[in-house]
Write a protein that binds this DNA or RNA. Sequence first.
RNA 1: CGGGGCGUGGCUCAGCCUGGUAGAGCGCCUGGUUCGGGACCAGGAGGUCCAGAGUUCAAAUCUCUGCGCCCCGACCA
Length: 480
Amino acid sequence: MAESPITARGKDFAAWYQDVVLSGDMAEPAEIVKGCMVIRANGYAVWEVLQRELDQRFKDTGHQNFYFPLLIPQSFLQKEAEHVEGFSPELAVVTIAGGKELEEPYVIRPTSETIIGHFFAKWIQSWRDLPMLTNQWANVIRWELRTRMFLRTTEFLWQEGHTAHSTHEEAIEEVLRMLDVYADVAENVMAMPVIKGVKTKSEKFAGALRSYCIESMMQNGLALQAGTSHDLGQNFGKAFDVKFQSKEGQLEYVWQTSWGVSTRLIGGLIMSHSDDRGLVLPPKLAPNKAVLVPIYRKEEERAPVLEAASKIAKDVGAKLDDREGQSPGAKFYHWERRGVPIVLEFGPRDLASGNIILKRRHTGLKEMLTQAGIAEAIPAALEQMQTDLYTAAKQRLWENTVLADSIEEVEDILSGVTAEKGGGKFVMAHVKDDAICDARMKQFKATIRCIPLVDEYDGPGKCIVTGDVVPQRVVIAKAY
RNA sequence: CGGGGCGUGGCUCAGCCUGGUAGAGCGCCUGGUUCGGGACCAGGAGGUCCAGAGUUCAAAUCUCUGCGCCCCGACCA
């Protein structure tokens, strides 16, 4: 046994997740730095693919990348009352630098609304400067009490888009446009079905008027917020005096948005598709889409097999695993744990017959193909796999979504659900957007995940907590 | 911050109760035989036993203090 076995999902989902992350060469705990992780080669390669997909879409929608400082004057955070209240418990603060106590401490950015607000104020004067459409790829630090690799770590990587507009309508359009971008990447690249919705007032971003989100369901039935997009209104505009002169000559505060996704997406990806044999990556995100493992018994078979294998690998764009001293079996396990969608086996028998074996990661099935047909078979198999993964995840979401019409019913459905044991559901119920209702859900450790943008159920009904009539059902679940 | 666990070659851990100067498996290096789902043989390298203090002729082991990490709950992308 080359590496430790993977805990079965059914036995302990949280342990399974850790095992998959570690054995898939995705990340490991930073060990000497509390709550942080090292993103390893395979994990970072996946992040790079995600970055590429997202960044292209940001550019396509008119955004430009910037980079703002990691350190933010502490007083900046305090300029927006709700914002400071929301973030102060999570801040890391630099008080000494260059051997001297600082007159004003810096916080390490937990998010950049404030410092960007400062620069927007400097850059924006006229309606002609709007909209200002920026994005930055960065790391942030939020001091967390409870960390899990990718899902919540003290430091994480993300992108944060920040925009300023002349009207609220235009800002709202932007917020929804970027939410759609996130949903598109989640569903069509990551094969993760999502529900687009609005956060309740108590769950929204500190400082926003409204927060929109995409919520997805993990294999244990827990919800994961995969992305957020905020309508900041004029809150930060007022706090940082970001004003512009309108066409009519009036001085007005800008309307801002911010939106972000993080390396948490990778955690969601893992918990959506992987299995008891390790990581499963959707083809569109896989750094290596296919790997060819050559097989030879005798020394005289080595050269001809390797020569032919190398040619096939080159023709079909597969990585050739020609490492010496590792048996083919060890190589199969190696790539399986790392989520490679397709593994090709090629040995002396195939050399003689003109065939080749193709194995699909997600089904575990092997099939024999002709070498001539392999160049076409691979793209087809990858496409099929992408579809299969999405369909399976969508199916799971449907099967684990239930309706409830009383608070007791909701509590009953979600009682005993944990990250380890699983059994989670999305419970659709009528609940009012009121702090009392959010608090009631917390009593059994669930949250209102969102109010879906599209009501797929029965319209208005009575709130199961307050009895007031509300427009539609909301998603209630236990979450990461 | 509460509860639990842990800290010993690169990794997983045994040894600790009952002190006597450090071991196993895996990995690594060299050579050979292997190779269609985790190969085998032989030889070899590698350790301030988390840190500090104490007890003792003698501490990985006993006592105290500190540090760190992981897991489970309360805050959160």
